[in-house]
């Protein structure tokens, strides 16, 4: 068991190092000079002053050193928990900016991913082998899962936010309120959270339900199901077994889907102007603030890696076959 986890940890660590390296590279090879664009905003006409300010900021951001040294500095900063200083919101540290946005994204993503997965699986299992449900719900599921996240988000924002006016269509909370721990503020937060959450939830739900339905049908045709049927076992027991076995690919699917869901969350946040990481990425891109970009990507990478690692471990706990493989024992 520990050997398996150790091996997995090593692979994840390697992935982490590579991801961080790419993460460091991309903004540096992107077109546009962040210091220049920051100074452009100040519209300084004196070339000498411009020259001196450029040198000053390059020292502040650590851009005056050779590339390889920047790379090592980046790693060193990482271990001290320093992600640098933002250029668009100078002089705020990147970490503070990200930590401010992170709760919004997590509050969107975690419930959307987990609830859509749980509900979708239950629902798919329920719809399998039920003619009426299968014929009505399945096509809807196919449409939902093929829907782009931001398109559904736009649709929801327009219909329920603007036409019906049930929910606010933009922002994380009303600008008239001051963040505090009160019922008024929390209910306002929730009403702002609802539409972006729903758009993520609905798209993911369709995919899970279809996957589960197909898996259940497959498992109900499996030999062990036939054997139990021949021995007169009730439907309930057979379906319970089928469900448990059908869950295994769904868990793998969850790990695979995580990346897409996060991308979907970025677009959804932008549509709803939700103050999470997605919106942060967009404004960082627009302002060529590659310190913030780097920081956000780092958080996304770490988040996906941690989630995948957890799923790997869960998988081992519930599927005896992976357990046998990893301990190296045979039949």
């Amino acid at each position: 068991m520990w050997r398996y986890i150790g091996r997995k940890l090593f692979v994840y660590l390697l992935t982490f190092v590579i991801a961080v390296t790419i993460n460091w590279m991309i903004p540096r090879f992107m077109p546009g000079d962040p210091v220049r664009s920051m100074l452009n905003r100040a519209s300084i006409s004196d070339p000498e002053a411009l020259e001196r300010m450029t040198t000053y900021y390059e020292t502040v951001f650590g851009l005056d050193t050779p590339l390889y040294q920047q790379y090592f500095n980046f790693w060193a900063g990482l271990f001290r928990g320093e992600l640098g200083v933002s250029s668009m919101l100078y002089p705020q540290p990147v970490l503070d900016i990200i930590l401010r946005s992170l709760p919004y994204t997590l509050a969107l993503l975690l419930p959307a991913i987990l609830l859509s997965w749980i509900v979708g699986n239950r629902f798919g299992a329920f719809a399998a082998r039920n003619k009426v449900l299968d014929n009505t719900v399945l096509p809807v599921g196919y449409i939902l899962t093929a829907t782009p996240y931001m398109w559904l988000a736009l649709l929801l924002a327009w219909s329920m936010g603007i036409v019906l006016g049930w929910f606010p269509a933009s922002g994380g909370y009303s600008f008239s309120l001051i963040p505090e721990f009160s019922w008024l503020f929390i209910s306002d937060l929730i009403s702002h959270w609802f539409l972006p959450f729903m758009s993520l939830f609905i798209v993911a739900l369709g995919g899970w339900a279809i996957g589960m339905r197909n898996m259940i049908i497959y498992e109900l045709e499996a030999d062990y199901s036939n054997y139990l049927q021949a021995l007169g076992a009730p439907r309930r027991l057979i379906r319970r077994y089928a469900f448990r076995n059908a869950m295994l690919p769904q868990i793998t699917g969850l790990a695979v889907q995580l990346g897409t869901v996060i991308a979907g969350a970025l677009l959804t946040e932008i549509v709803f102007n939700y103050p999470g990481l997605g919106t942060l990425i967009l404004s960082a891109l627009n302002n060529r603030d590659f310190f913030v970009l780097q920081g956000v990507f780092l958080f996304v990478v770490v988040g996906v890696l941690i989630a995948n690692f957890i799923i790997d471990i869960i998988y081992v706990l519930i599927d005896p076959r992976t357990r046998v493989q990893m301990t190296g024992g045979g039949a």
């Binding site: 062990y224 036939n226 054997y227 139990l228 021995l231 007169g232 027991l237 076995n245 005896p320």
Partner: peptide, 30 residues
């Protein structure tokens, strides 16, 4: 009648057992 009166050892005995249940547990469930 099934199992109590008429029982079957299937052609596919190798895959007749639920892969994710311990055998003792499966017998208990059954």
């Amino acid at each position: 009648l099934r199992y109590h009166e008429i029982s079957l050892i299937p052609q596919y005995a190798m895959s007749a057992l639920n892969p994710t249940r311990k055998i003792g547990r499966m017998i208990k469930d059954l």
